[in-house]
Nucleic acid binder design. Sequence first.
DNA 1: CATCATAGCCAACAGGTGTTGGCAAGCGTG
DNA 2: CACGCTTGCCAACACCTGTTGGCTATGATG
Lengths: 185, 185
Amino acid sequence: MAFTDRSLPAREAILSAARSRFATDGYDRATVRAIAADAHVDPSMVMRYFGNKRQLFALTADFDLRLPDLTAVPCDEAGHALATHLISRWEDDEGLQILLRTATTDDDAADRMRAIFAGQLAPQIATITGDATTAATRAGLVATQALGLVLCRYVLRLPPVVEMSRAEIVRWIAPALQRFLAGSP
Amino acid sequence: MAFTDRSLPAREAILSAARSRFATDGYDRATVRAIAADAHVDPSMVMRYFGNKRQLFALTADFDLRLPDLTAVPCDEAGHALATHLISRWEDDEGLQILLRTATTDDDAADRMRAIFAGQLAPQIATITGDATTAATRAGLVATQALGLVLCRYVLRLPPVVEMSRAEIVRWIAPALQRFLAGSP
DNA sequence: CATCATAGCCAACAGGTGTTGGCAAGCGTG
DNA sequence: CACGCTTGCCAACACCTGTTGGCTATGATG
């Protein structure tokens, strides 16, 4: 049951097709048959190489924020640094879009989303503010603004949000993030 | 083909069940059979009374922000007024949740979402700022924060965002909305 | 060259989906 | 009362879904 190099192109084609389909259609509407067709492969190959649809999804839906070290910049520039990093991070990785598109209806995906913000963002915030008690709340607030942006720009495609340039978005969003990160209500 | 008062309880039960199912499961996973079962009704009745699944969804998925007149409050309190209104508005009406849950995978629903923010919010903003050129952009920015909050609190249920009280949320979110509404980057 | 695991393909299954039509019972209207 | 429309239920359709098993051929290995 081990796979050789000969099938590697096929496996990679499937993985790539799955990423695209899941990113644009979400888990339910991205059918195994459609993914297989995109990858020029028989649907049964998908099962042989990846077990089942859920396992295939799990492989495509792991996303890492890859946060930079926010303690490296002055505390009052953390918001700007975070905004710039995030927008470029999810502009070349459709992982967040995949996750978000299905997290609205699938609890497993929602769990991953929760894990990302609790596990990757909250700890970072705790170190830059030095206050562990409010870190979770601040991470949640950052999530509302950050995910709201992803939602409006990449998923719902609200025209005014799509039309803004990266720089414009950073200019508007950074102060909001800054206040959530280290400011007070 | 006209319906009498006798079937009115059944029709209302279907509508109510559909709202709940669509709100929690999204369009695809909310099956006609499940809705019918919740309403203690045969699946074929759903079709007779509402034509097909999409039409039934369209009936449950119309949402009105019911924005108050933001020009009635001082300009620098518009953010606070908007925040308080919105959070209470969508806490007793699951319409927005229905729409958001399926707008991530369904373009019709996404269209409705776009229409809401372009048609209901943007004009209001134009009048309070007196600047029609930036109104659409400001509406989009407000959408990122407002929808992000709905997403995190009611759909993804990020624990820190769920645990905050209404008042806390307003205190944190209002300034962000205020800046988007009438401030500058 | 002979062997064998693997890759690829085809057909089929079982289950669930939206949707349709027909038939018996019920109520309101003439 | 008798007619006719509405209601409710049952069964079935046609389609699509994920998933499985078996067949052939191909490449690597000894």
